[in-house]
Nucleic acid binder design. Structure first.
Length: 570
RNA sequence: GGGUCUGUAGCUCAAUUGGUUAGAGCCGACGGUUCAUACCCGUCUGGUUGGGGGUUCGAGUCCCUCCGGACCUACCA
């Protein structure tokens, strides 16, 4: 048994997340957590809402509520959306929690002692109308390079040139449109990542073999270009206050405090449950044997491989508190939406709350993981979704469970029959299982979710092939014992199929396991030899065919959804 | 502009990291079965691996170039 700490990238607070966010971090982390628990590991899965930064303040302003109240609301909404999708967090915290304030300030103090923080003055656009400093992308104006009038402060969309907002001609606020803006000097703290570059490179290069290329290549590219120091404070009201003379009214940058919230949320988990957070995070307090796995989208990689590790390594180098660095990092590409991107701000695509109104969470979980954006971006289409549900879930799994349980009721009094002896057909399925089950486990351990889903489906399909081979309905006419062997094996396959389905489709898996009365304690992944798996249910055990497991998605539903959501493609 | 990734069957994706004849699922065609939500099982069709050039005994894989897509490019997160 291992101890496995799992975090998924923190969902940002500015709205319920779309399917792309779900598929790229929270859901795979959950599936992994469930699989590892089934394998008997001690798992702690931590997530939280990421609540600071300019977009949160602006979203609150749009909603015409106080930012703290807005975050309260949205935190509850996201927590509830997570519950709807059966995300099995051990704790779902908040980056705005008091624990994170204290811990972030503590890290900052230690980095200061380590000489890794310094003050610098920079020029920033201030909007008098909005009464706020404007991040680069919230300033627009005329491009000094090509005279394009709608250039953003960071980059001109017309000529592609990287810009500094103070160079824009006739700058205006993208928030209010006001031209009443001015350049002000403002003082900020910088994290001296540059002095950590060698440590970081050594660490990243040590993970070339076990991290996805997506992760190491992004990190090394930044290092190759020369890691620059990064401002870790902002001129905002909402956030974690910087405890320093002259920094009144300033807060830490959201990307500085958000990853620290992984730890702070674990502290909150500990205070709620009586757990010991230090044994998970502090290598000087027993966390040495913990395997820490992070899940994130590709846009998050730099922060998780460079900035946050700078915080951790810099703090550890002080020789005091020792914190864990990530061991395994799983980065995902995007789920794309009819050729474009999902977008929270532009409300394009399908969002978690809408998705759950359309179809049960298991349908989404299955489809998104069977088509996870692992190797490259993955296209979402309604037709593929329909296909996944109808073909994989309803026809292959649902029909299997239904056909054998109904037959048992019809011909064997609804109980697991005795009689007969295993023969060549049973030997065939045993061979299949003895190859496929270890492969399935290996895919989960390697966090290869497409392959895990594919193998799961292949095992279900093998069950259908087994029934075709053993054909108990044919033997029943001449040799009831022979038929009993097939029915018994079939019912045990039902139980097994439910057991292996649990990480991906927990709700239906539970229904299946209830139908064949598998006790809660017998649902973990201790697969013995395949012959025993086919004879695990007690003879005489009463089984109950489940209610319809999956409702097929009809063509007219696909048409309706395409019209309802597809119109926003643009 | 720079960097990284990517382009394989009608669709969604594989291919033990340079090694036999490029494989699965879906879709389609045909056959079988009748326990089942008309589902399942089997067979078959389908490819100049984006274009062009190169290295090599051998290239989907490595190099060059062109074309398309995505992401990052440090104050959006």
């Amino acid at each position: 048994m291992s101890r496995i700490l799992i975090t998924s990238a923190l969902p940002y607070i500015n709205g319920v997340k779309h399917l792309g966010n779900l598929a790229g971090s929270m859901l795979p982390a959950d599936v992994y957590a469930r699989a590892m628990r089934l394998l008997g590991h001690d798992v702690l899965y931590i997530c939280a809402t990421d609540e600071h930064g300019t977009p949160a303040e602006l979203a609150a302003q749009d909603a015409d509520v106080d930012v703290a109240a807005y975050c309260d609301q949205m935190h509850e909404a996201q927590k509830s959306a997570g519950e709807d999708f059966k995300l099995s967090y051990d704790y779902f915290g908040r980056s705005s929690a008091p624990s994170n304030h204290a811990l972030t300030q503590d890290f900052a103090a230690k980095l200061e002692e380590a000489g890794l923080i310094e003050e610098r003055v920079s020029k920033q656009i201030y909007s008098n109308a909005d009464q706020r400093y404007l991040p680069d992308r919230y300033v627009e104006g005329t491009c000094p390079n090509c005279d394009f009038e709608g250039a953003r402060g960071d980059q001109c969309d017309n000529c592609g040139k990287l810009l500094d907002p103070i160079d824009l001609i006739d700058p205006y606020s993208a928030v209010s449109g006001s031209k009443d803006v001015e350049v002000r000097e403002t003082r900020h703290l910088y994290l001296r990542q540059s002095v950590m570059a060698d440590d970081l490179r050594k660490w990243v290069e040590g993970h070339k073999a076990d991290w996805p290329p997506l992760a190491t290549s992004i990190a090394l590219k930044w290092l190759d270009e020369g890691l620059r120091d990064r401002a870790i404070t902002r001129d905002l009201k909402w956030g974690i206050p910087v405890l320093r003379d002259g920094f009144e009214g300033k807060v830490f940058y959201v990307w500085f405090d958000a990853p620290i919230a992984y730890i702070a949320a674990t502290q909150d988990w500990a205070s709620e449950t009586g757990g010991d957070w230090e044994s998970w995070w502090r290598t000087d307090k027993g966390a040495d044997d913990v395997q820490y796995v992070q899940f994130m989208g590709k846009d998050n990689v730099a922060f998780h491989t460079l900035s946050f590790p700078t915080t951790i390594i810099g703090t550890n180098n002080q020789g005091g508190d020792q914190y864990k660095l990530v061991d395994n990092l799983k980065a995902f590409n995007w789920v794309t939406w009819y050729g474009g991107k999902f977008s929270t701000s532009q409300k394009r695509g399908v969002f978690m709350d809408q998705a759950i109104d359309i179809a049960p969470s298991d349908y989404w979980r299955w489809h998104l993981m069977a088509n996870a954006p692992e190797g490259s971006d993955a296209a979402f289409t309604w037709e593929e979704f329909q296909n996944s549900v109808n073909s994989d879930l309803a026809n292959v799994l649902g029909n299997f469970v239904n056909r054998i349980t109904k037959y048992t009721v019809g011909k064997f009094d609804g109980v697991v029959p005795s009689g007969g002896e295993a023969g060549e057909h049973e030997a065939w399925i045993e061979q299949e299982l003895s190859e496929r089950l270890p492969a399935l486990i290996a895919h989960y351990e390697a966090r290869e979710f497409r392959k895990a889903a594919e193998q799961t489906r292949a095992i279900w399909a093998a069950g259908n092939e087994y029934l075709t081979r053993s054909a108990p309905w044919t033997h029943y006419k001449t040799d009831v014992d022979q038929a009993a062997v097939g029915v018994r094996a079939g019912l045990n396959l039902v139980a097994l199929f439910g057991i292996i389905a649990q990480p991906l489709i927990p709700d239906v898996a539970a229904k299946i396991l209830d139908a064949v009365s598998v006790p809660e304690g017998n649902r973990s992944w201790n697969f013995g030899n395949a012959a025993d798996l086919l004879n695990a249910l007690p003879h005489g055990l009463a089984i109950t065919p489940p209610e319809l497991l999956f409702t097929k998605i009809e063509d007219d539903q696909v048409t309706e959804w395409t019209q309802r959501f597809g119109g926003e493609t643009a």
